[in-house]
Design a protein around this nucleic acid. Sequence first.
DNA 1: TTGACATATGCCTAAATAGGCATATAATCG
DNA 2: CGATTATATGCCTATTTAGGCATATGTCAA
Lengths: 113, 113
Amino acid sequence: MARSSATSDVFSAVAEVHRRDILDALITGEKAVGAIVNDLPMSQPQVSKHLRVLSDVGLVRCRADGRRRLYRLDPEHLRPLHEWLAKYEQAWNDRLDRLDDYLAEIQGQGEPQ
Amino acid sequence: MARSSATSDVFSAVAEVHRRDILDALITGEKAVGAIVNDLPMSQPQVSKHLRVLSDVGLVRCRADGRRRLYRLDPEHLRPLHEWLAKYEQAWNDRLDRLDDYLAEIQGQGEPQ
DNA sequence: TTGACATATGCCTAAATAGGCATATAATCG
DNA sequence: CGATTATATGCCTATTTAGGCATATGTCAA
């Protein structure tokens, strides 16, 4: 019983650094598979397989253009990640506040910008 | 050659739903292992092992209290996730904006609250 | 020391991949 | 049609890992 399938879980899908690399490559916009292969140090089948996983969880969408397939981000599907992380923002900020306090205390003057 | 070790990568660490459950359980504050075991449908060794992984990537910190071990969040270490996600905020918002436009267009009146 | 409680670890197995490679599928061109 | 380009898939293997269970380790109390 290993981890929940990357095919059904956004968290698992982005757990793979190569898949994050692909998503990053798509930030600038729609790209064909071949373009991604050129941009990243990955084989074509490797890219296609990762795109499949990303597609299964909805993080990318595909559209045909002749014999090419153009993939683009669907950042909406990052929402679960975003919302999960948001729960920690408070704790996060509390900690940063304490750091600010600490720094202010050390410097004993002015406000950090 | 499987995915990068959950032991060294925050993304992989939070890819496991049970580990997210543990982190969630710690949002309210420091807790002993036994308390987590009571809160969640997991065995004690299971919890300990997940805590080990979370600890290895720095997401939790541990302190001894008699024979108990109290674990607490270290949300600072969610930063890589946070920063990675932030890169998509722009694309995310663009899409929401388009959705807003679309909704406004459909309704042809007033602002959505 | 002995025993009870709290937690961590080791061993084992089943399952899920990632990646390599070859190849299937599909679209375009001559 | 045949050749070429673009992408997807299937097969195989090595590796990772989650969970069960037993047990080691550590701490406290009497």
